[in-house]
């Protein structure tokens, strides 16, 4: 038979290792050259564009950048930016989880309320919301806290409660909650229904299933977009400069309003934003790795391994 003949003719032992001439990629070298030339010309402009002696405030003025990079007012702005970002994200995530769970509720009133919240805060510009909260005392001069339609327990002027910081946090947090709820909802939906059923069959309560089974698995889907949201939030805090909250951009503005060195101070601001977002990238990497456990046989290759593998043949 044909098959048995083939078996007989096959030489014994392992065949020789393949030695072939690899495919050349001239296109890659040309593309790399073009990119390098453009990058070099941009770098030259940035370095040599230090400004001319005759035209004041022209060019990048790197010495001014260096002078203000660690200015105490700028550093204070950095600190304010960090804690406003952190607080607003905490408010946003808490509201987001609550709104997402409400949205998935079988009760139409509860899910409808969540839908309305998301619809309103996603549908209006963040800048408008910020100015709105800042001017709240114009709408409600006094604020009362108490039993609905019953006696008020606390009664005070809006001005004393809605400070600039509170207005800023309310605006950023409420807006973020609307976006986060959609992210959390997508995460919850992504968990296979069999997971809840297995947990139900073991006698676990709905709250236990959500907390121990569904949310930890949803985190894998929730974390990457939440990282994006945090980076957006960090930059969106600069919008609070319009209500004179002393964050990083406002700190720079108060300096350049006096000395007119606008460009160097905006560079200072940009450097600090880049430093902060870079730190967030690192944090996100570790959080993703934590929640990714149990989902792939091998952990994803580290950054170092990926750089090293560029030179290898498999790439």
């Amino acid at each position: 038979m044909a098959t048995s003949k083939l078996t007989e003719e096959r030489p014994t032992g392992r065949p020789d290792e393949i030695k072939a001439v690899p495919v050349r990629h001239p296109g890659r070298w040309i593309a790399a050259a073009i990119v390098l030339v453009i990058a070099a010309s941009i770098a030259r402009t940035i370095i040599s564009g230090a400004g001319s002696k005759t035209v004041p405030n022209s060019g990048f003025q790197w010495h001014v950048v260096g002078q203000y990079l660690f200015d105490s007012r700028v550093l204070h702005g950095v600190v304010v930016t960090i804690y406003v970002t952190a607080l607003a994200m905490v408010i946003g995530i808490v509201l987001g989880v609550i709104a997402a769970i409400m949205r998935l509720s079988p009760n139409p009133i509860v899910s409808g309320a969540s839908w309305l919240y998301i619809w309103f805060f996603r549908g209006t510009p963040l800048l408008v919301q910020i100015i709105f909260w800042y001017n709240l005392q114009a709408l409600f001069p006094t604020i009362s806290l108490g039993i609905p339609f019953g006696p008020a327990l606390i009664h005070t002027h809006a001005n004393t409660v809605i400070t600039t910081l509170v207005a800023g946090l309310l605006a950023l947090g409420l807006n973020e909650g609307a976006y986060m709820s959609e992210i959390v909802r997508a995460g919850i939906i992504s968990v296979d229904e069999g997971q809840s059923q297995a947990a139900q069959a073991l006698g676990m309560s709905r709250l236990q299933i959500m907390r121990l089974i569904v949310l930890p698995q949803a985190m894998r889907v929730i974390i990457p977009p939440t990282g994006n949201e945090t980076i957006s939030m960090l930059k969106n805090t600069s919008l609070l400069s319009v209500i004179s909250l002393g964050e990083l951009l406002f700190a720079a503005q108060t300096i350049y309003d006096v000395n007119y060195k606008v460009i160097p101070l905006l560079i200072v601001v940009s450097i600090w934003y880049l430093v902060m977002t870079s730190v967030l990238y690192v944090g996100q990497y570790f959080i993703e790795r934590h929640y990714g456990r149990g989902f792939s046989r091998a952990q994803r290759a580290t950054m170092r391994e990926r750089w090293l593998s560029i030179g290898s043949k498999q790439q």
Partner: peptide, 18 residues
Amino acid sequence: RAEIGMVFQHFNLFPHMT
């Protein structure tokens, strides 16, 4: 339910736990 064990076709183990 806690007194009745159930084994599923697709196992439904919790993937984030050992």
